[in-house]
């Protein structure tokens, strides 16, 4: 079965989804990612979907679940690169991905994660 690679960049993990995913590939990604967060202590996850021309309810749910699961493992998730047509379709489908943080591209997503981490660390010290 195909597996989506998870790259480590400092305190963050980067996932770039470039294939039209099978449902089981999406599930495997969830498992792999949670294991990697637990092992590495990563504090942030960036999911780049700029190559995806379709996000249906199954993939949408997987993204929302990853965001919630990561939070329980003390990591924040930012979804980046959603295409305009995908955003329009997701909302009409009824999936608003509430609770999922987004940024336009990988660079802005990294900034968001870094800023969130600084804020979080400051809060921890209070």
């Amino acid at each position: 079965m195909e597996r989506i690679p998870i790259l480590r960049m400092g305190k963050f993990l980067l996932i770039t989804i470039q294939v039209d995913m099978h449902d089981t590939t999406a599930l495997a990604l969830q498992d792999d990612l949670m294991a990697k967060i637990a092992r590495s202590g990563a504090r942030g996850v960036l999911i780049d979907i700029s190559a995806l021309d379709v996000v249906d309810s199954y993939i949408g749910r997987m993204i929302a679940d990853i965001s919630m699961m990561s939070k329980l493992l003390h990591a924040r998730t930012v979804l980046v690169g959603m295409r305009p047509a995908v955003a329009i379709t997701l909302v009409e489908l009824g999936l608003s991905l509430r609770g999922v943080k987004t940024a336009l591209d990988v660079e802005k997503g990294m900034e968001l994660l870094a800023a969130a981490l600084e804020d979080g660390d400051a809060a921890d010290q209070d």
Binding site: D23, V54, A85, L93
Partner: peptide
């Protein structure tokens, strides 16, 4: 149109599943 393609492909994906 691209948006309509995306909507139809998404609908097909839901129904195929």
């Amino acid at each position: 149109r691209l948006v309509d393609q995306t909507k139809l492909v998404t609908a097909a994906s839901e129904l195929a599943r």
